[in-house]
């Protein structure tokens, strides 16, 4: 059965349980093309698990997950989904520590290549330009030869966002991008994401409410695996239940 929607991402009645514990409970969420969405919610609400389901890491017990209209994501694995155009930044920044900043970006743009082209291929002019662009966007051009392990926590977060851009996805899933960042870095990251959102669909998970306010987009609050409230931030943050379970902590 084919489902045709006009949305970038379409989750309907999705559930997944770990040893009987329902981490995601009848979750529905729709993201339109070009939309940026902020997801908030208390620890353990299922935000990361939702990304696991979208990216093929976790298979839902129930429900449907469609990408780009009619692609049933539950039938594919991580690599296939990544190649289709979904990029993901992990909650704990994950970069290739023993490679230079530049090589991290380079490796992120060759995910669809065969072993032999990886062995024999040379860096093309186009790739060089693209690397320069991305490094400028994430403001790491001064550190391009630095080993990733020597970067600060915030710089690693940016590098990982740069790696997603290099992947050239249609949809970016970004899990807690400003954790461990200074205030200045946080402001800078919001600017960066707004920039990215001009040309990509984006889902951002974050606890930092100032940052979420800065993004100025529709907000979804998750709680116990389902949507508690959705809408503009003022609307969501005025919601009694949201204040009870999350904001009023």
């Amino acid at each position: 059965m084919k489902k045709l929607t006009s949305s970038m991402l379409y989750l309907d009645d999705v559930s997944v349980a770990f040893d009987g514990f329902k981490a995601i409970n009848s979750l529905s969420l729709v993201l339109e093309p070009g939309e940026m969405r902020a997801i908030i919610g208390p620890n353990g609400a299922g935000k990361t698990t939702m990304m696991d389901i979208i990216t093929g890491k976790t298979r839902p017990d129930r429900g449907s997950v469609y990408f780009d209209g009619d692609v049933d994501l539950t039938r594919f694995d991580e690599s296939a989904i990544a190649t289709m155009g979904i990029g993901r930044k992990f909650q704990k920044p994950t970069v290739f520590e023993s490679h230079s900043v530049e090589d991290n970006i380079l490796l992120s743009m060759s995910g669809d290549q065969t072993i032999s082209s990886l062995l024999f291929g040379r860096k093309s002019i186009g790739e060089k330009q693209r690397i320069d662009e991305i490094l400028a966007t994430i403001r790491l051009d001064g550190l391009r030869h630095e080993q990733a392990e020597n970067l600060s926590h915030g710089q690693k977060q940016w590098l990982e966002i740069g790696m997603l851009l290099a992947q050239n996805p249609k949809l970016l899933l970004i899990d807690e991008p400003v954790a461990g960042m200074t205030d200045a870095e946080t402001v800078e990251t919001a600017r960066l994401l707004r920039e990215i959102a001009k040309t990509h669909a984006v889902i951002v998970v974050e606890h930092d409410m100032d940052f979420v306010r800065d993004l100025d987009v529709k907000v979804t609050c998750l709680h116990e695996g389902s949507v508690l409230a959705e809408g503009p931030l003022e609307h969501v943050s005025a919601n009694e239940e949201v204040i009870d379970v999350y904001l009023g902590r």
Binding site: E78, S79, T83, G87, F90, T94, V95, F96, L107, Q167
Partner: peptide, 9 residues
């Protein structure tokens, strides 16, 4: 970082 490579395709 094996899983990172997977999520890059």
């Amino acid at each position: 970082a094996e899983s990172r490579t997977r999520f890059l395709g």
